[in-house]
Computed example of a mutant assay.
Amino acid sequence: MTRILLVPGRGRPRSEHWMCRLADANPDYRWAPYPPGPPFTLAERVAALDEAVRAAPEPAVLVAHSAGCLTVAAWAARHTGPIRAALLVTPPYVDPAWEPDPNGPPDDGVYGPVPHTRLPFRSILVASRTDPYTTFAQFERYAEAWDAELYDAGDAGHVETASGYGPWPAGERLIDRLRQPPE
């Protein structure tokens, strides 16, 4: 059995959001953190993901959206656990040279430096050609750094409710693909 852990972005997804629809349709899917939503601090989200990964010995597929993708990359840089694969949907771009303000709150209240190292599990990065937070070239750089397969979603905005994504059949097919053992 493969568990599905949903790793939300920075805010609380609306009930129409594809992640909420997946959770509603699949009661065995779990949120990491639960309940999803603000405030987003990277350290707290990484700790919540680590707790969810360690909650059971079965391998998990991580399904992350937006800032949740950064949570996955930060978790993988610091922890290990039974992860089969990850679906990383439209991670926001954070300049690799960015450093938190030393006079600001921890993690500067949001991200912290984003690891640009290979993920130790199979992953697919979903890239949009019209995302307001990340250019396609920046998605390509993330995919290369994380050794993720790049999935071109075309004109998909940020793959969220405002971009027309309630149901997302292509995402469900990608999750099903990642649930399968590698060939």
Rank of each mutant, 00 (worst) to 15 (best):
M1A: 09
T2S: 10
T2W: 01
R3E: 14
L6R: 12
V7Y: 07
P8A: 10
G9C: 04
G9I: 00
G11A: 11
R12E: 14
R12H: 13
R12A: 15
P13E: 00
E16N: 03
H17E: 05
W18M: 09
M19P: 02
C20G: 07
A25M: 00
A25E: 10
N26E: 08
P27Y: 07
D28Q: 08
D28G: 02
Y29N: 05
Y29P: 02
Y29D: 02
R30M: 11
W31F: 14
W31A: 08
A32P: 15
A32M: 07
P35R: 03
P35Y: 11
P36N: 05
G37D: 14
T41D: 07
T41P: 00
L42N: 11
L42H: 06
E44K: 08
R45N: 15
V46I: 15
V46N: 02
L49P: 09
D50A: 08
R54H: 02
V61H: 14
L62F: 10
V63K: 13
S66L: 01
A67E: 01
G68L: 06
C69E: 07
C69I: 06
T71N: 07
V72D: 15
A73I: 04
A74S: 15
A76Q: 07
A76H: 12
R78F: 04
H79Q: 05
H79G: 01
G81F: 12
P82F: 03
I83A: 04
R84K: 13
T90N: 08
P92G: 04
V94M: 14
P96A: 05
D101Q: 10
P102A: 06
N103M: 12
G104N: 04
P105L: 13
P105H: 10
P106T: 06
P106H: 07
D108R: 10
G109E: 10
V110Y: 15
Y111R: 00
G112M: 12
P113L: 02
V114I: 14
T117N: 07
F121V: 12
R122I: 04
S123I: 00
S123Y: 03
I124V: 14
L125F: 13
V126Q: 01
V126K: 00
D131F: 12
D131K: 14
D131L: 10
D131S: 10
D131A: 08
Y133E: 00
Y133G: 11
Y133F: 15
T134W: 04
T135N: 06
A137Y: 09
Q138N: 11
F139Y: 15
E140Q: 15
R141K: 11
Y142C: 06
Y142T: 09
A143L: 13
W146Q: 13
E149H: 09
L150A: 11
D152T: 04
D152L: 08
D152M: 08
D155G: 10
H158A: 05
E160R: 02
E160P: 00
T161E: 14
A162Q: 03
G164S: 09
G166C: 02
G166I: 01
G166H: 13
P167G: 08
W168K: 03
P169Q: 10
A170L: 02
G171I: 09
R173S: 12
I175A: 01
L178W: 10
L178P: 12
R179L: 15
R179H: 09
P181W: 13
P181H: 12
